[in-house]
Structure formats: C-alpha cells, structure tokens
Design a protein around this nucleic acid. Structure first.
Lengths: 141, 141
DNA sequence: CTTGACTCTGGAGTTTACTTCAAGGTTTAT
DNA sequence: ATAAACCTTGAAGTAAACTCCAGAGTCAAG
C-alpha cells in the first residue's frame, strides 16, 4: 500500500493533484488508515498512468472520468470507447491542420524578413500579421 | 470614427472583448465623445485584425502586447520581431510533433479495436492507454 | 522523546481570455 | 417625445487543471 506521497513520486505528479483527482472522481484511495491517511494499491499507479496518457492524447479530465466510468459499467462495450477515440482523433487532426497552416504562415513571414536591421516600422512580419489570409479553422463541437 | 459597437462588428468580436483589450493595453480608442463614448479610427480595425491573426499564430495576448509595444519603441528593430516569430514557430513545431505522435497512437489503438461488441473489460484501447509508450514532450520554457 | 518529514481538511488563488451583470446615461429612429 | 438600441463603469463570474495555504495531526529516525 502506498501513501499519497509515494504514489505521487511513482506517478511523477503532486500529492495535491492526486487529491484533486479524487475530488473530481478520477481516483479514489483503496482505503484509509485510522488516522485518515490515504492508502493506494498498485493499481493506482496504473490508473495515474492511464490518466496521464489519456491527457496526452488530448482527453480532458471530464472525458477521462467518463472513460473510467465506462469501464466500470456493465453495459458499456468496446465500441463505446472506440467511437470516443475516433472522435478524439478527428479533433486532433483538425487542430494539427490548423497549426500547420499557422506554422507555414510564420515560416513565410520569417523568410520574408531579411537579416538586417530594418527599423521595426518596416518589419514585414508585423505588416503581414495585419493582412494574413491563412485561416485557422477551429473545431466547433 | 467608429463607436465600439461598429468596431466590434467590423472585427467580428464583442464590445466587451474590445474593452478588455483596452484594459490589457492592446487597443486604446483614438478619442472619446463628451459623453464618454469610445471612438476608434480605421486603424483600430487593422489592429483588431492584427491581434486576431497573431492569436491564430499562437501568440498570447501578453506576447501580442509586447509585439505592439515593440512597434512603438524607437530602438526595436525588425530582428526583434523576427526572433520572436522564430521562437514561436519552434514551439508550434514541437506541439505539432507531439500531437502527431498522439494521433498515431490513437490510430493504432483504433485499428486494434475490431468492430464487435467485446465487453469493455477486453477493450484494447483502454488496455493500451495504461501502457502507451508514445511520449508527448511539451515545450518547457 | 523530539525533530523533521509527511499527511489531513477546507478553502482560496492561479492563468487566460474573455463574458455577464447591475445600474444608469446617450443616441437614434419613429 | 418616447422607445429601442446603444454606450458607460466596475466588479464578479467562467472554464480547466491544478497549486498554495493555514493550522493541526501523525509517523519514522536518532
């Protein structure tokens, strides 16, 4: 059994964040000592990792909580999870495209700006930022 | 001269957001009427666009304020702007790479999950989320 | 047995980019 | 002339994912 500090170290996260996860219904301690200390099992480490990976995959904590609850519900099936993953991937793809558009625009701006010491009034980057056409579309859910 | 509402419409933004920009030192009205109404010149429309484009390029309002102040300072030169743009592009590139890694991981997970009605206990996506290795490195400023 | 490290709770603070509200004054259109 | 639409200020609220704090109790080492 791990105390909150040990779990925090194992998961490279702060004890405060773990307590926050508990408040948010993402991770409850397996038990408590008589004095009220939280005790976690080894599965807590896996769950922390799950949360972190899912976060890295772009899921919010609310969505992760849903995934975790899905896992506990009897009627949920693999496809429920799959469809969420597919949706997330589509959102991610849209964001990547938008960021690539922006990156390309910045690239063009940087290329335009010769190494030199033009006064800032003549800076092509600032000028371009006023007129850019590259539209970055966001996903509207 | 435009009132705040007209400028808001021209810039596709709310009047409240414009007042917020003013508080944040991004956009001041050219003048005020006797009754205290804000009046903006045409350049305000360009400035709003500048702010929006720069935001789309991943600059925060604080950074945009810096860019705008740079423009007004005598000693700033084009290269000051350029180097900020380069830095921003590097950050963007790192984020895009991380998101692509994540997207690829999701893709693999989705592929693994056959169309079927496996109970959620056997879902390969949930299992994989516990063990993913694809590390998404963030930029540490 | 004492020191220091750890933990508890509950609540407040952080960041960003706004939005919403309340209570009132001003313009414009009819 | 009066109603609708617009504008003013200052303050407070929102979301997300935490962090930080005070004040107090608990545990491990020497």
């Amino acid at each position: 059994m791990l105390t909150i500090g040990k779990l925090a170290k194992a998961g490279d996260i702060s004890p405060d964040a773990l307590r926050y996860y508990e408040r948010e219904g993402l991770l409850a301690p397996a038990s408590k000592t008589d004095s009220g200390y939280r005790l976690y099992g080894e599965d807590a480490v896996r769950r922390v990792r799950f949360i972190q990976h899912a976060q890295a995959c772009g899921f919010t904590l609310a969505e992760i909580r849903e995934l975790l609850h899905l896992r506990q519900s009897e009627h949920a099936c693999c496809n429920d999870v799959r469809s969420r993953a597919v949706e997330k991937k589509l959102q991610l793809a849209a964001k990547i495209r938008a960021m690539q558009t922006i990156s390309a625009a910045l690239e063009r701006l940087i290329a335009k700006c010769a190494y030199g010491t033009l006064p800032v009034d003549d800076c092509p980057i600032l000028a371009a930022l006023e007129q850019i056409d590259g539209s970055a579309q966001d996903d509207a859910p």
